[in-house]
């Protein structure tokens, strides 16, 4: 797999580390309910098909990226900086 880093260009996936599903939202730290935290820490959508994921360009620019990748085919689609505003995700 090659990931097209918006900063460095297309690079081998071996340069990156993986942090999984980017759609998970951490509950507020003031939320002390077990259910939300259980869902966040343990449960996964485990999507088959296009999925938004965090990849870290560790051996490159060290930026965190959100990569859309198809888990059924390993095909890589849109890539953006994780720090970019949410509106950038439109259509990704």
């Amino acid at each position: 797999m090659r990931i097209n880093c918006p900063h460095c260009g297309p690079r081998d996936s071996a340069e990156y580390t993986y942090y999984g599903d980017a759609s998970r939202v951490r509950p507020s730290l003031t939320d002390t309910g077990v259910e939300h935290w259980h869902a966040y820490v343990h449960e996964r959508n485990n999507v088959k098909g296009p999925m938004q994921e965090f990849w870290h360009h560790l051996h490159g620019c060290r930026q965190w990226l959100v990569v859309t990748r198809n888990t059924a085919t390993h095909e890589i689609g849109a890539v953006r900086f994780a720090k970019s505003p949410v509106s950038d995700t439109a259509g990704a």
């Binding site: 081998d12 994921e53 390993h74």
Partner: peptide, 13 residues
């Protein structure tokens, strides 16, 4: 391989 997958095949790294 270290990433989510349903593809039944891995990569070269």
């Amino acid at each position: 391989d270290g990433y989510n997958s349903y593809a039944q095949r891995g990569n070269l790294p």
